[in-house]
């Protein structure tokens, strides 16, 4: 662990994350014409935290109360059989539901796109949104599916072997995005 820490470089610090989320909140308001009938759904755990932060900012800027929730995708993953059964995250749908609304999925890191694919399947089972958009704090590239983000905090060029780790105050006690280089032992 400490070895990996030594190889880690902070690419975003607290204030950078703050500014990125502020910009994304503005972009959502702009593109959805004041966040009308928008629902923010975070992918647990850190996506759910980011979704709540975005909702707070949107409320701050324009006084709109956007419904916010979480959608767990574990049961929809395509790699379940590659690892032991994993614990489930929490799905919390806002009372308003998703039918006929614009759902903005929120995740911390966009990588292969497989998580988002699973989220689209999960969403399909809870209702029929009018449109689905995707917001991500970091887009690190290396897509394996035809998926792209509508709102991106930072485009981060990475090597495939590197790891991107997002820390958030609510779950990890601090805000930071780290790029971790694999040890070439």
């Amino acid at each position: 662990m400490s070895d990996a820490r030594n190889q880690a470089r902070a690419v975003l610090e607290g204030p950078d994350i703050h500014r990125a989320l502020t910009r994304i909140a503005h972009e959502i308001l702009e593109r959805t014409k004041g966040a009308e009938s928008v629902v923010l759904l975070g992918i647990p755990t850190r996506g759910a935290t980011l979704a709540r932060r975005l909702a707070e900012r949107i409320a701050q800027f324009e006084g709109v109360k956007v419904p916010v929730g979480a959608i767990d995708i574990t049961m929809y993953r395509d790699d379940l059989r590659l690892r032991p059964a994993r614990p489930l995250g929490r799905t919390e749908l806002p009372a308003e539901g998703v039918d006929g609304r614009t759902v903005v999925l929120v995740d911390d890191v966009l990588f292969s796109g497989r998580t988002v694919r699973a989220a689209l399947d999960a969403l399909n089972d809870v209702g029929r949104p009018r449109a689905v958009q995707l917001a991500t704090l970091v887009d690190r590239g290396h897509r394996e599916l035809p998926i792209r983000a509508d709102y991106v905090g930072k485009n981060l060029p990475t090597a495939k072997a590197e790891k991107v780790k997002v820390y958030l105050q609510e779950t990890d006690g601090r805000d930071a995005v780290l790029l971790i280089k694999e040890d070439a032992r």
């Binding site: 049961m75 379940l80 059989r81 590659l82 690892r83 032991p84 059964a85 994993r86 614990p87």
Partner: peptide
Amino acid sequence: YLLLGGSEPA
């Protein structure tokens, strides 16, 4: 789920 949902049971 915990017995069959992965490569091996949890």
